[in-house]
Design a protein around this nucleic acid. Structure first.
Lengths: 172, 172
DNA sequence: CAACAATTGTTGTCGTCAACAACAATATTT
DNA sequence: AAATATTGTTGTTGACGACAACAATTGTTG
């Protein structure tokens, strides 16, 4: 029953470089004609991927002056809200590999934003804290992140953004 | 006005490995206590990233038997809907680097799902087509992708999924 | 028409990132 | 005390995006 429904249904909007007009002049400007996406429209994953790329790019652009990327921001935020956490706890909470968190913290520690304090209750683990500079910086980062969030609201609409946050609340 | 709201507000739920009970027995099972996310809740990017990871993992899992990943699926879908497209056109439409598309097509061509046909109107470019096997396979992939989409609907709710698709329609 | 510029596919490099595996130091369990 | 598990660390692998360079071909312009 699925023998010939798939392919012939959408042959119309193609003809991207199959010749069609007579004048060969507008040739290489017309391949931005609509290219059918067929099944991709209606796939949540595709839309979400594109949206996520846009969001990250805007975040990076908006926080470019302070050179903070989304993952770094999430790490700083979690440590700021829960000082003393171990690396394992932070990694688990944010869904990062603990191996990856090592490098993230190396960088943040080099920039004097975070300190690894030897935990006295478990000499294997480090208690993570923001430095004074880290706390002050994080406040500034949050202002810029809020500006980024306004960009999102402008892009998709404020109430759409609210709705989206409610829909995805289970994933935070 | 954001001088001291950030850090002291959420010190309560921490104590991950700060000792708290007397019995040292449940120690390393209790660090999955709530860890405050503070500012991260309310950031669209964070929720979208987590959601996107979940979606991709489910897609990969659901299509594991046929060994097709999201990007491969999108390439096959676009070629299937628009046979004869050039690599540039596909790359532009999907937002992939044309350098990256080369490897994707190499793999799909090795699996006899896609053919690069020399275009006669422009001897630089290739006209992309699904093979007969590619068309048959794509029909099967679409069935599995629909099953994945049902997983998404189960996860966030069918009408929430519809709403989300409408909100993000501008990004497809 | 001839020189120049642009496009297409390809190859390669670089940096980011997730997923593992292995390891030493330390904690927990038996 | 011996066996087992956890934490932080290092290293490897593969997927991925961003670039740069290149040959072949096409388009443009004087």
């Amino acid at each position: 029953m699925s023998s010939r429904a798939a392919q012939p249904a959408l042959k119309a909007p193609v003809s991207a470089n199959g010749k069609r007009g007579g004048n060969g002049k507008a040739r290489h400007q017309e391949q931005d004609i609509e290219v059918g996406l067929d099944g991709l429209v209606g796939h949540a994953g595709y839309a979400v991927r594109r949206f996520q790329i846009w969001i990250f790019q805007d975040f990076i652009r908006t926080l470019a002056a302070v050179d903070i990327k989304p993952t770094q921001y999430s790490v700083l935020t979690v440590i700021g809200a829960n000082p003393g956490l171990s690396q394992m706890a932070v990694a688990k909470r944010l869904g990062i590999e603990r191996a990856r968190l090592v490098h993230l913290l190396d960088s943040l520690e080099d920039r004097k934003l975070v300190r690894r304090v030897q935990s006295r209750t478990d000499r294997r683990s480090h208690a993570l804290h923001l430095t004074a500079r880290g706390q002050a910086s994080l406040r500034q980062f949050k202002l810029l992140a809020a500006e980024h969030e306004r960009h999102v609201a402008e892009k998709i609409g404020a109430e759409n953004r609210e709705h989206l946050l409610r829909i995805l609340a289970a994933f935070t």
